[in-house]
């Protein structure tokens, strides 16, 4: 489904990605873990070219992502769901509008878009909050709106960029719960960047550890946590044990 080869990205002198290779199979849930600044977020942002990599290749569904023209990229992005750490909701729009507006802008009729948006909100348990503004919601609710927005297009792949990192520990649970349900129910290919070890253990088909812009270890959760080879994996295992 997703093939990443020798992906490199630098911000000036700072190397964010130093040649990443990653394969994700259709329907697979891959959790990427690693310390802050190791390039996790840059990696998944490169996948839908929110960040332009300097070098390498990204093939998604047989399509060379980096070769896409601007209109092609826009179409491509509609096939990719992206959930942000900071929710990234449009503050001036209602919850329903946040979830449906890109459908309408993509050419869908308003009514149909609204129906789909409401259905999506149903999935995250926020249908009742459809007419509220994002600022009237809690962080967890806002993130669930973000998830609903990503899901509403029935994406081929979902990219999660530390979806719980900005939430209070109390609110983390409700988001992880929604995510877990989605993973189990939708069967969508997912690449999730998170520090939630137990969540990863529960939902991931594969865990990828990154350090200093490189993939240092990867494998099924039971394997990597049972016999971690890299220092990063060992540290996460310690977190799990504790």
């Amino acid at each position: 489904m997703l093939e990443i080869r020798d992906l490199r990205k630098s911000y000036g002198k700072l190397t964010a990605l130093a040649g990443v290779d990653l394969d994700v199979a259709r329907g697979e849930t891959v959790v990427i873990m690693g310390p802050s600044g190791c390039g996790k977020s840059t990696l998944i942002r490169c996948v839908n070219r929110l960040t332009e990599p300097d070098q390498g290749s990204i093939i998604l569904g047989g399509q060379d992502v980096l070769a896409l023209s601007s209109p092609e990229l826009q179409k491509f992005r509609r096939r990719v769901g992206f959930v942000f750490q900071q929710f990234n909701l449009i503050a001036r729009l209602t919850v329903l509008e946040n979830v449906m507006f890109h459908l309408v802008l993509g050419g869908m009729e308003r009514e149909e878009a609204a129906e789909r948006a409401l259905a999506s909100l149903d999935k995250v348990g926020l249908r009742a909050a459809a007419d509220r503004r994002p600022r009237e919601l809690s962080g967890g609710q806002q993130q669930r709106v973000g998830i609903a927005r990503a899901l509403v297009t029935n994406p081929e792949i979902m990219l999660w960029d530390e979806p719980t990192a900005s939430l209070d520990p109390i609110l983390v649970g409700e988001v992880l719960e929604v995510m877990e349900e989605l993973v189990k129910e939708t069967g969508t290919t997912m690449v999730i960047v998170t520090h939630e070890v137990s969540f990863a253990l529960r939902v991931a088909h594969r865990i990828v550890f990154m350090d200093q812009g490189r993939v240092v270890e990867e494998g099924p959760p039971q394997e990597v946590f049972a016999e971690p080879r890299s220092e990063i994996a060992k540290l996460y295992r310690k977190l799990l044990v504790n």
Binding site: N48, L50, S70, P71, Q74, K75, F76, R77, R78, V80, F82, F84, Q86, F87, N88, L89, I90, A91, F101, H102, L105, G106, R149
Partner: peptide
Amino acid sequence: MELMAGQSLGLSNVQIMREV
């Protein structure tokens, strides 16, 4: 954040400008 959301949702630049 809103700008990035617009991009990630596959909006064109003109849509991003007009709506976001």
